[in-house]
């Protein structure tokens, strides 16, 4: 029973009934609202498409530095081959000066090793 001094209008019985008889939200509506909450949640945008796996050559090119780097490498390769095949006269003179290579075929004979060191050690091992 409610004290008349606290409830002179006699309304508490109605308020109490309304609090107990709370309007119910349907399960469907609750499910719809939950789906909406999840849809609108930050960080739940569609995941980005997975990056396709790259093959060996594309990985290699990427490691080197891409097509510009590969073009530089090809140019250097061709230049190296050209210099090797048709060496400039200046380069030939320089090379012979530096190495002090023999100028005659006679000298070349002394440079031949008839029994290389590893063959000798192999023979000795078999003979023992």
């Amino acid at each position: 029973m409610t004290d008349r001094r606290d409830d002179p209008e006699g309304l508490e019985v109605f308020f109490d009934a309304a609090r107990r008889d709370r309007p119910r939200l349907s399960d469907d509506a609750l499910a719809r609202m939950t789906a909406q909450a999840l849809d609108m949640q930050p960080g739940r945008a569609a995941a980005p498409a997975p990056v396709a796996r790259r093959g060996f050559w594309s990985q290699l090119i990427a490691t080197i530095g891409g097509w510009p780097a590969l073009a530089g490498l090809a140019t250097a390769g061709v230049a190296g081959l050209w210099i090797g095949a048709v060496p400039p006269a200046m380069l030939q003179t320089l090379a012979s000066d530096l190495t002090g290579a023999a100028e005659t075929t006679e000298d070349d004979i002394y440079l031949v090793d008839p029994i290389p060191g590893y063959m000798l050690s192999l023979n000795l091992a078999e003979g023992s």
Partner: peptide
Amino acid sequence: YANGDPAAARLLTARLAPVVH
């Protein structure tokens, strides 16, 4: 919820929707 926790989304809806309704 703002940090993307789906369980928080479900729980908040279950808690608040009946109150608002």
